[in-house]
Amino acid sequence: MNIFRLAGDLSHLLAIIILLLKIWKTRSCAGISGKSQVLFAIVYLTRYLDLFTTYISLYNSIMKIVFIAASGATLYLMYVKFKATYDHNHDSFRIEFLLIPCVILALIINHDFTVMEILWTFSIYLESVAILPQLFLVSKTGEAESITSHYLFALGSYRALYLLNWIYRYMAESHYDLIAIFAGVVQTILYCDFFYLYITKVLKGKKLQLPA
């Protein structure tokens, strides 16, 4: 464990908590893409299957359970409790265009052709594009509530901090995983234009308005 990875995990946890609080407090999931949340749930379920087979550390196991539980709770709030506030019209990204390529790529490029490893690889590829429906929704509505932009900033920062973690681990432990690094770079790049808008607008108290 290093400071970058810890900061990344905490940023990830913060993002998930911000989202849950936003939906719970405002009793609305307006502006949130249910499709992205479905993809994140798939990411956690396919990646954290090793929860029952491999024990890494108490921290690792607890965080996996928290992420799976929080994503389940978010889906429940969005698709059951506050279903009426779900923005079906704007949340129209075709997630099969993300799922199918990730499955194919995981079958072609992986470390080991075993079920667990293919699922882990699929999960890594899927996570890198899972935010697209959310960014698509924000671009369609042209704006985002500031709480939603804080959520996106924390979520984007988590994988950016992981990039620093991978640099550190390569230098300190000569450990690297090209699949995770490649996907992490793609994932972080997808947030770049959002990061720009967040820093130039939201931090100045303005609403996140995408140029029409």
């Binding site: 990875r5 890494i56 965080m63 996996k64 992420f67 995983d177």
Partner: peptide, 10 residues
């Protein structure tokens, strides 16, 4: 390659 026993990151 970069084989290693298990994925220790979240």
């Amino acid at each position: 390659g970069d084989e290693f026993a298990k994925h220790d990151e979240l």
